[in-house]
Amino acid sequence: MTQSAFLAVAQHVGEVVESATESLLAQAYAIDDAPRLGSLVRIPFGRASDGSAGCTYGVVTRAHTAPVDPGRAPVARGQSATSLDDIYREHPQLERLFRTLFAVRVVGHGAVDGAIVHYLPEKPPEVHQLVFACDNHELERFTERPGYLALLLADRGPIADEVTAAFLREAARVRGIAGQPYLVHAGKAMVSLLRGDSVRLATLLGRLG
């Protein structure tokens, strides 16, 4: 399946609301409905959003749900409820008063000819560009070579290594029985990239199991 054909049938999971060269912020279309931590997403370039102008690849690094209006503090609603469903039935407007945002770390891009490269694109994605979840095949293709690790490990945020570990676990899972050798291969690449930071390396490797 060509990239364009795939985009035509894939369901987008969010929309870019802030964009920068190395990261972006996207809004999910329903509250609490962000893509999983560490999952791979694709953001096409161009007004057509069909991938014909290439795309950006990123990894979901954080999700956050908060009031649409930051001036309105949420209050507890469930004193007489027995479940979350009770609360939403009693207060249907709540789903409209919150929004879920997710942050994406850019880890590569797809060229116009379909080739995948593990370095930053020339421009950040357009604001309001659609964000698509990558399927297993695309994740496998993106992670064929470990070049993406350099950009992932460059992030030194407080949960950056959790994100890297989650991403690698998913890249191994989609490979089935080839997953374990893949993790060994990725681990070796990280040894090289994290030379001099054995504590961080050990922590990361400990999260791959």
Binding site: R89, P92, Q93, R96
Partner: peptide
Amino acid sequence: TVMIQYGADPDAQL
């Protein structure tokens, strides 16, 4: 403008 619907099919439009 606000619509809130309660009961069997809860919904809201703001």
